[in-house]
């Protein structure tokens, strides 16, 4: 068969233009500028960029972002974890319960993280060993975790005060930088290195692109998926602890619906549900866009109902843009 000339192929590649991730960051910058200017006009002073607004927003971003980065890796293998919201509820109740028994704060953190790992082990076992589709498996465990949370707390909220727990969500480094943000940045760096530079990251991508070819090349496909479910469980628990700290209460309703927010952010960031495609920086952009949008619109006194509608529209618009860009790129080649 005649080969199309390689020069031509190369040229075509270049025309595809800027990456999706770059596009997201441009959108983000425009959004931030917009809210900065409108808040100036509306309040006659800079509210959006004030410490009063930025610190709570960034703290909220961080626990969602930590989970989103880890979930990105799982999603790239083509699996998903919907049980993160339930995990947060359970962790939050467990933490408050243990604190109420007078257990040392540091130990509580360790126990909660261990619980998160255990929840990940369950998910991993059900998906990789029993062969249950991960959507179904984790919708199931989501309900189980939350149910256990209700059981632990008797359905009530419990105060959760403790120096260690407080620091986790509300502590600061160098006086101004919230501790959860530091955690988030560390998670971004680690997951970025894993996905862009490491051997296991390469395996994760390859599994997502073609699990069969990866398996037949000697990759331990099930083992890697198992490991990522464990990471997800631990990340969700860490998120649960931060949320407990931020709100100073442990309650089973914590994290309700959060799984959809996190999945939306990851998808918005360009990760494909079918696996094989996704970037940690894209997820970062996705998380920031959704949070800034929520924060900015709230600041402008837009009613929550409308914010919901706008968020949905943004998600669909961005993903539709990906699809259109992709099919154009394909047509060019």
């Amino acid at each position: 068969m005649a080969e199309t000339s390689f020069q031509e192929l190369k040229k075509e590649r270049k025309k595809v233009g800027i990456s999706n991730t770059l596009m997201l960051f441009i959108v983000l910058v425009i959004m931030i500028a917009f809210f900065g200017i409108t808040s100036q006009i509306k309040f006659d002073q800079q509210f959006f960029f004030s410490i009063l607004n930025l610190i709570p927003m960034l703290s909220n971003i961080s626990y969602i972002g930590i989970i989103a980065c880890i979930l990105t890796m799982l999603l790239i293998t083509g699996e998903i974890d919907f049980s993160i919201g339930g995990n947060i509820g359970l962790t939050s109740c467990l933490a408050a319960l243990l604190l109420s028994k007078g257990i040392n704060g540091g130990l509580v953190v360790l126990i909660c993280l261990a619980a998160g790992i255990l929840m990940g082990v369950f998910n991993g076992f059900i998906v990789t060993r029993l062969g249950v589709n991960s959507i179904i498996a984790t919708i199931g465990t989501m309900s189980i975790w939350r149910g256990i949370g209700y059981t632990l707390s008797n359905g009530e909220s419990m105060l959760a005060f403790n120096p260690v727990i407080d620091y986790l969500g509300r502590g600061t480094i160098f006086r101004y930088i919230p501790f959860p943000i530091v955690l988030f940045i560390i998670v971004i760096i680690i997951t970025y290195i894993i996905m862009n530079r490491s051997k296991i990251g390469r395996r994760i991508y390859a599994i997502g692109v073609n699990p069969m070819a990866s398996y037949l090349s000697g990759t331990n496909v099930k083992g890697i998926k198992f490991l990522l479910f464990i990471f997800c469980g631990a990340a969700a628990s860490l998120g649960g602890l931060i949320l407990t700290s931020l709100s100073a209460v442990g309650m089973p309703q914590h994290g309700q619906g959060l799984e959809l927010t996190v999945v939306s952010a990851v998808i918005l960031g360009g990760t494909a549900l079918s696996g094989g495609k996704g970037q940690i920086l894209g997820t970062l952009a996705g998380v920031l866009i959704l949070s800034v949008l929520y924060n900015g619109l709230t600041m402008l006194n837009i009613m929550y109902f409308y914010i919901q509608i706008i968020r949905g529209i943004v998600l669909i618009l961005v993903v539709a843009t990906y699809e259109i860009r992709q099919s154009r790129a394909l047509r060019r080649v």
């Binding site: 051997k199 073609n210 990759t219």
Partner: peptide, 29 residues
């Protein structure tokens, strides 16, 4: 296409797919 290649990855990634461990001394590639 179904069993042999990860089609969306590069020639390079496909050549080294069965031997990722040899791509560096540490955990990095």
């Amino acid at each position: 296409k179904m069993e042999g290649l990860a089609l969306a990855l590069g020639v390079k990634e496909n050549i080294t797919l069965a031997n990722i461990n040899e791509l560096g001394k540490s955990f990095l590639i």
